[in-house]
Design a protein around this nucleic acid. Sequence first.
DNA 1: AATGAATGAGGTTTCATTCAT
DNA 2: TATGAATGAAACCTCATTCAT
Lengths: 194, 194, 194, 194
Amino acid sequence: MNNSDKCDDIMQAAMELIAERGFHDAPMSEIAQKAHVAAGTIYRYFENKEVLINELFQEIEDKMMDILLGNYPLGKPVKEQFFYVFGELCRYLITHPLHFRYMEQYFNSPYGISKRRDKLLGKNINRDGHDTLTGIFEEGISHQILKDLPIIVLSSLAIGPMLYLIRDHTLGFVELEESLIRQITEACWDAIKK
Amino acid sequence: MNNSDKCDDIMQAAMELIAERGFHDAPMSEIAQKAHVAAGTIYRYFENKEVLINELFQEIEDKMMDILLGNYPLGKPVKEQFFYVFGELCRYLITHPLHFRYMEQYFNSPYGISKRRDKLLGKNINRDGHDTLTGIFEEGISHQILKDLPIIVLSSLAIGPMLYLIRDHTLGFVELEESLIRQITEACWDAIKK
Amino acid sequence: MNNSDKCDDIMQAAMELIAERGFHDAPMSEIAQKAHVAAGTIYRYFENKEVLINELFQEIEDKMMDILLGNYPLGKPVKEQFFYVFGELCRYLITHPLHFRYMEQYFNSPYGISKRRDKLLGKNINRDGHDTLTGIFEEGISHQILKDLPIIVLSSLAIGPMLYLIRDHTLGFVELEESLIRQITEACWDAIKK
Amino acid sequence: MNNSDKCDDIMQAAMELIAERGFHDAPMSEIAQKAHVAAGTIYRYFENKEVLINELFQEIEDKMMDILLGNYPLGKPVKEQFFYVFGELCRYLITHPLHFRYMEQYFNSPYGISKRRDKLLGKNINRDGHDTLTGIFEEGISHQILKDLPIIVLSSLAIGPMLYLIRDHTLGFVELEESLIRQITEACWDAIKK
DNA sequence: AATGAATGAGGTTTCATTCAT
DNA sequence: TATGAATGAAACCTCATTCAT
């Protein structure tokens, strides 16, 4: 319990520092300081910086998935499923700007080279046997509801704009309130629907 | 000529290294080595690393703008203008994957903090008095052709998917050939059109 | 104790190197080597080279002041006070040639630009409410014992020769033994007395 | 003639830069620039930086000696000779602050390690068979006019204060006008006279 | 288990000097 | 003779990682 406290402190400190300043401006010593822990202590919990970074990514991903899958409208129409996933993801990232910044850093770095957006939103979402964005798209295509495009293309059309807009939101360029989110969801739906 | 050569060699080497491995893993010494130049030589052409990075950005931007503005369909319908910009940009980035990777690194780093995507694609494109993406959107909105959304939102809907897809293309996850580009353009148009 | 040791080793090494060869020929790496310490270790104790240099100066100044103020003949006649300060300072610098050389380097460098000789020997000596060279001179002038010249002139007349002679002493050009010091003190007194 | 022009330009530029900023902040490239000459050209006239620095010193010394020896009151009383040398030297340094700064830098650097003040004012002054400060002192001692102290001590008593005061003058701490110079000369004479 | 001082490789940058033109 | 681009050693400093306590 003491252990896990320290571990959490380290992860929290690391996430904040990295989200705010990027990987190359987040020294282990400063992470340690921020976590009220000695520099060497970090290495009892994480073999090295890369491992810490990857575990941080994993943790955020897991949390996101928990929320996304919590009330997933299983068996509902494709459109409803899409609106649900889009809206939840959007709200999650807006209310967790640190997670969003961290993910951005991660995917734009050598660390995240192997886990691109599509993997995250495609493969991993089907954890626990639940449906996935991929699933939504496949179903939509086969039901002639969605355009007959490669899944990866549909997924970019559906998710790409949102990620850019959330960045703009965190930078203060737009205010993404509920009604605007709704409109954007509609627009993305227009992009993928037949 | 000799001058140009060395300077070009340095810029080329820097761009490749940075595009492939990011700013913080592209040491000046290695850039020099790759450019077949002594470390100190770089500093005859660029005051410091930051200047090199920014000039590299500027060069890419200029080249892109030259192509984008070359055959710009001035005075043509909004839809045609949009298809032109989208297609040209897409083709440019696909044929210049290093430029694309470099721009990604740049915009996701402190260096590019002030020149975000929207600025690039919004403000700067109106060089030489030409129309701009922003211009296209404004005209489209006022003619009731496009959805009445903030420009920044339209721009994300229009460009966001493409940027993700080009990344996937450079990673070998999709093959963006001409017909697919056409379909994506259509889909993005669907997203923004009324 | 270990701490102190390393820090002292670094300061000692730095002082020796700088005193012997000047600031610009005393690389941090060599200081480290001389102190039997890794280069990076220096930066645990001193933020950068400038800080190290300034702390070294401060340390020397403090030691000198401790000695100068130790048996200060408070309330005694001006002449006695002058002879005390002159003699003590002279003896201190002769027995601490490294300190002397360091101070010379320091005052003849950008580092010491703000703390010139006069400040050192004028203002700072009045720590702990004690009298100062300036004080001695002011009292002497008002009592018509000393020449009515600007303090800064008196201070040069009083101290200038000594500093040159100590340099010559450290270089082996003169042997400043007690009786000669006495004579020099007398001569300097002749220079300033009415 | 062209040659010697370039050579003069280089020396002038070097002197100014070094006097103002010190040896270690006067890069050859900048000296070249200031002299409107290519970097490599300097090396046609001076084997390396050290040689340039030493020749610069020599040149200044020669100019000073020319002036000092120009109207030297040969055969006049010791006191008059002393007043002459002191006054001339003082005036020269005040009217040639760059020379003064350069000399200061020089004597406080490894370059000038072998040519200390005493050498300058003692040995070298007897160029052309003229009398010297040393000569003045020797004569003064033997005539019982001056204190019976080592020449080097007398020379420090006589010259030390002036050098400090000129520094203070160039720094704006005192204004050394003619009447003050006279008073200081008197004071220094008091220091050395029996 | 925890500490944090110590390490030292490696980063950016400067600059005296050389040499092809 | 003059040029100035090129060199590369060496300076200062950072930081991931180790290890004695």
